[in-house]
Design a protein around this nucleic acid. Structure first.
Lengths: 157, 157
DNA sequence: ATGCGACCTGGAGTGCACTCCAGGTCAAGC
DNA sequence: GCTTGACCTGGAGTGCACTCCAGGTCGCAT
């Protein structure tokens, strides 16, 4: 357990590229990373920790801009902890919504698959009884989420 | 219940822009949309249905390229139903994985929030007993997903 | 017939998050 | 001391999914 990690180690650990690591630093997502004599980066425990959080938030689609704001708060010290909590809570809420949406869509997709399976089974039956290669048409069965009336962006004109 | 919808109606219905609708068509995500005498598009039930599926798949992050392939299969007729099922099943699997990942990360974020809350509470207690504005340091507590060893993309050389 | 909003086309532009590159420098083993 | 692989910099390039634009045309109500 060394007291710092090389860029390569760190990149491998998080499954990101060196370029991404440098990019994050440039964008201010990491608090000032230390350098050795030759200018090579040294990632310490605190960097690794913050990076861990950053990756967690990125993996859940927090945009870079918001991550920068968050890192800014971290840089400002302990006084910003309440604000960090707010940021995380808002993100968690959005994430919960996103998960719910995905679960809904997943159900719709499964429904569609089941429908297609039905078409297939019917076609097979027909083949056994009659002889044609035709079944139902291209694709009936609603998939969900269709007409909701909300969120009418895009009007043009 | 008219037998076709105008572009504006369709866009509103799905919460997308006219540009997006045209883009989808250009990219081959929709099977040839009919036109009226003046060249204006007419979206019929079958278009709306396919669009519904397309949106469902897009909303769950299926890339345009795969959607194009799917639409291609639809264009090829009923014989491709088994292959469509395969595509949908693979997508559903990926989606399930993605949802699981998001749920994990969500737990990590909640954990982090709880940790921060603990820091806050401790600081308040300390304030009541002593008087300082300092608590614990910047941000301890793991967030999860850190070192996994797999997926070492990015090597450079 | 005229006004006006919805629609048309081809093509260029945008925003995001990386990713790649050239042309070096550094560090560790032999 | 030399090689070799890891690392450095600034800046340009990429891929994706739209989004915007100019300069028209359509179609319906008045």
């Amino acid at each position: 357990m060394p007291d710092y990690y090389t860029p390569g180690e760190t990149a491998r650990r998080f499954g990101v590229s060196l370029d991404t690591l440098r990019y994050y630093e440039r964008e201010g997502l990491l608090t000032r990373v230390e350098r050795g004599a030759g200018g090579h980066r040294r990632y310490r425990a605190s960097d690794v920790e913050l990076l861990d959080l950053v990756r967690c938030l990125r993996d859940t689609d927090m945009p870079i801009a918001r991550l920068r704001e968050f890192a800014e708060l971290v840089r400002e010290g302990d006084a910003t902890v309440p604000r960090r909590v707010e940021v995380l809570e808002r993100h968690e809420e959005r994430l919960a919504e996103r998960i719910a949406e995905l679960v809904d869509r997943q159900a719709a997709i499964r429904h569609k698959i089941a429908y297609y399976r039905g078409v297939l089974a019917a076609a097979e039956d027909a083949e056994g009884a009659a002889g044609g290669a035709d079944g139902a048409a291209g694709g009936r069965a609603p998939v969900g989420a269709g007409a909701e009336g909300r969120g009418a962006r895009g009007s043009e004109g």
